[in-house]
């Protein structure tokens, strides 16, 4: 009984800590996709959440992100900088980034 109570208190503390420390809540395995995606954050915001005119990646599915990157790379859509960046990534890397954003939404 005592143990249960202690555990309840502790998990309450843990929950509070989770919300108080969003960085820890963001802890994750450095998978290939996670590491590659982190390079997107310098313009698209941490986790891909943009609060500017730069498109937010968290609103898009992985498939839509991969498609947008390919369209930019192949010059199918007008744009400014993304065409130049997209050409720097392989198909496998684009897929890994897309899969990461899908997994991060779950």
């Amino acid at each position: 009984m005592q143990t249960t109570k202690a555990r309840a208190v502790l998990s309450g503390a843990v929950a509070a800590t989770l919300f108080a420390l969003p960085g820890l809540a963001g802890a994750e395995e450095p998978t290939v996709g996670a590491v590659l995606a982190s390079n997107c954050y310098i313009c698209h915001g941490p986790g891909g959440t943009s609060e500017s005119r730069v498109p937010s990646l968290t609103r898009l599915s992985g498939k839509a992100i991969a498609e947008a990157v390919r369209e930019a790379r192949d010059g199918k859509k007008p744009g400014t900088i993304m065409a130049r960046i997209a050409k720097g990534y392989t198909e496998a890397q684009i897929e890994a980034i897309a899969a990461y954003f899908d997994q991060a939404k779950q």
Partner: peptide, 11 residues
């Protein structure tokens, strides 16, 4: 220029 401001906010 807008993207420059977006880059700054993001990074």
């Amino acid at each position: 220029a807008d993207y420059a401001r977006g880059w700054y906010a993001a990074i």
